[in-house]
Design a protein around this nucleic acid. Structure first.
Lengths: 161, 161
DNA sequence: TACTATCACTTTACGCGTGAACTCATACCA
DNA sequence: TGGTATGAGTTCACGCGTAAAGTGATAGTA
């Protein structure tokens, strides 16, 4: 069958000018944005971007509680990464973990009051960064395009999805 | 002056639905893409994504030579990060560093033949990933939008720009 | 009831990135 | 000529992320 060969050829076709531009733009974005967004959170509140996302997702969840796996998905991280981060947050008194009474294989992460406090304090910092670094420069068309692209790529954390 | 206050208010306005969707999409992208793109390079060639970008930029430069600062900019990394990576590449025989004869403050990084070899071998792997994970899912409009967004955000490595 | 498979995490060793402090070379200026 | 400032790059200690192996609970099966 020649289909496989053609498929390989197609995948190895070199990038044309527009493809290369799109690729270059995307890679500089994904390599540089996280650090820019994290810096203010670190300076002002001593937390990482991923920690903020984890705490923030919990704060918006029903009863401020989520299973680890779902939290990992929502915060765009692997389960392993989340486990380490939640351990550190637990040591700082922001999260407590309990086995899910409905099924002992699951673990529930729950935000404490102290955890809620720090999200509450860090949120304005984060919001300012997001506007200043990202949203202020983008019009409605750009924003819609971003949503579309993210949906089309639909990237999912390591063992999940 | 009330201008500053208004500016603060504006920055702290909560995200509307579309802004939040754009933001969510972007963050999952920047958090998850690097790992997806790096994995094949690591498995098949034992190099990181950033190492590939560094070697690749050098391979396309005149005389396969660039100043560290410019290389950092082109590879979307900080000078510190680049310095560490170039040191490791030098130990593996892929890059050599020499002071710029024109101005001793600059350092020139030059790709060796062995360095060129590994870029050459890794390029198809990388190209396949880029197509499979990113470009295959995007049409021309999406690609143009990405270019536009990246240009508007114009994010630049740490001490540079 | 046991035995195996699967699933949801958790742990650990290792490597990488970061920011701060440092080195060294050139530019500027008295 | 000296003396300071600037700018490029390097180094180091520290903390985080990763993959792989490990744990412990439930589901499936004989």
């Amino acid at each position: 069958m020649s289909g496989t060969g053609d498929h390989e050829d197609e995948q190895l076709r070199w990038l044309d000018e527009q493809e290369k531009a799109a690729w270059t733009g995307l890679i500089s974005l994904v390599l540089l944005l996280p650090a820019k967004l994290e810096s203010p959170l670190r300076q002002e509140h001593g937390i990482t971007l991923f920690e903020y996302l984890v705490l923030s997702q919990l704060s918006e969840a029903p009863q401020r509680k989520l299973r680890m796996g779902e939290l990992a998905f929502l915060a765009s991280g692997s389960l392993s990464r989340l486990s380490n981060v939640v351990k550190r947050c637990e040591q700082r008194g922001w999260i407590v973990r309990t086995p899910d009474p409905a099924d002992g294989r699951y673990t529930l992460a729950e935000l404490t009051d102290a955890g809620f406090d720090i999200v509450h304090r860090a949120a304005p910092t984060h919001l300012r960064s997001v506007r200043r670094i990202v949203l202020d420069s983008l019009n409605s068309t750009d924003q819609k395009a971003l949503v579309r692209v993210a949906e089309k790529l639909r990237i999912v954390p390591d063992g999940l999805g």
